[in-house]
Nucleic acid binder design. Structure first.
Lengths: 225, 225
DNA sequence: GTATATTTTTAGGTTAACCTAAAAACGGGG
DNA sequence: CCCCGTTTTTAGGTTAACCTAAAAATATAC
């Protein structure tokens, strides 16, 4: 079931930037978004609040910016539209890469579903676009498949899985200890083993092996990768 | 010399609506613009003030809305962009007329000069557009030619010319008299003759012949046609 | 462990583009 | 000439999207 949410152009831009930054860097930070869109960080902050209310982004104060499933789908759709318009202008009309990309930014907010699909058909017909590409995925999206990994505490990760640290929740001494062990935001951890009662947990991070108590691991918010 | 004025999307829409209404009805009224754009008349009024400041529209309180030369050129450019995008979507991609027109409305504000020209070239190459058409005129526009008739008082119109009444400036008795003679806004007048000292002036309006004193004619704002 | 730098958030603006309601001006009919 | 409906303008909002400056939280460096 397609829900049509009515995002403003700005919010679409924010969403798209978040999507891109997560693809590129693994995470989207307020300042990164602000730099990309050439606006103040405080403006991004306000935008995030709205996206949060719309249920497209999950954001806690000072916490990592993550897309919800709905947010991921919405962002992908916008990104895809952008890409199609870009390809169309650049490949079919021969518009320079820079201008084509720029124009795509503006047009993506205005183009109807119908025109978009006609562009896709045209690109496929002229072999500028393979069918399994971004554009085509859109049509398949109706089957609800899991597109964003869940946020979960490290002690809940099963042995053998890898995850990326989103946030260390605890405060003070404990937090300090965890971060000194290299458990910073963005770090990749692999759960190597768990003792019978789930305590301690053996993990590998940045090339080191560590042993964590369950209550310590329970303070670390991660996303499976 | 191309001056690039930076109009907001709204102001471009206003300008385009004025342009279209003048083509269609011979005049653009605040309420007509408001209806076309589905906004309140007071909003149009504010917009007109801004266009006036930019020197694109000549507007006096309660007076007729006329485009200046600069305004006419700007409006024509926007209209033309709209038309080209419409043709492109509809003819090349087969987008329905309604959606194509709708999308053109949104896209026209975002499309760069480069993309626009590439679209024009494409349309010409595929015979969807004759060279003397709107798009092509744009390229010629560099030579400053007179595109809008001047606003002038009726007593300054030369014998044999036709003009359209924009406004009757006087008040009270005289205004009443003039309007009772059929000299309303929108009426077409033809100057049939002038006495040696320019007084009286013989005109023909709505099938009648009238004789006006010069001071009376000097109260009537017209536009040569 | 504390100081310093960076990031995020809050507080408090501004501007453009809309709105409604009411006042002012206009235009036509008796 | 005066009245009345329509049009235009003014007055006084609201909202979204930005801003700057400063406070609060977090991250890093010594």
């Amino acid at each position: 079931m397609e829900v049509k949410l009515n995002l403003s152009e700005s919010l679409e831009d924010y969403l798209e930037a978040i999507f891109d930054l997560i693809k590129e860097n693994g995470s989207a930070r307020v300042t990164d978004i602000a730099n990309r869109l050439h606006i103040a960080a405080s403006s991004v902050n306000q935008g995030l609040k709205k996206l949060n209310q719309e249920g497209l982004v999950s954001q806690e104060k000072y916490g990592p910016i993550e897309l919800t499933n709905a947010g991921y789908r919405a962002a992908e759709k916008i990104r895809c539209k952008h890409q199609i318009i870009y390809l169309f202008l650049n490949r079919t009309l021969g518009v320079s890469e820079k201008k084509a990309d720029n124009d795509a930014c503006g047009i993506e907010h205005a183009l109807s579903e119908e025109s978009f699909e006609k562009m896709v058909d045209y690109l496929i017909k002229n072999n500028y676009l393979a069918e399994q590409n971004c554009a085509f995925k859109l049509k398949e999206n109706k089957e609800e498949k899991k597109m964003t990994a869940e946020q979960i505490m490290l002690d809940k990760i099963s042995v053998g899985s890898k995850a990326k640290i989103l946030k260390v929740q605890s405060k003070g001494r404990l937090k300090r200890k965890l971060m000194d062990m290299g458990l910073n935001r963005g770090a990749l951890v692999e759960v190597k083993g768990k003792a019978p009662m789930g305590d301690p947990i053996e993990i590998r991070v940045r090339g080191y092996s560590l042993s964590l108590r369950q209550n310590e691991a329970a303070e670390i918010l991660v996303k499976e990768v």
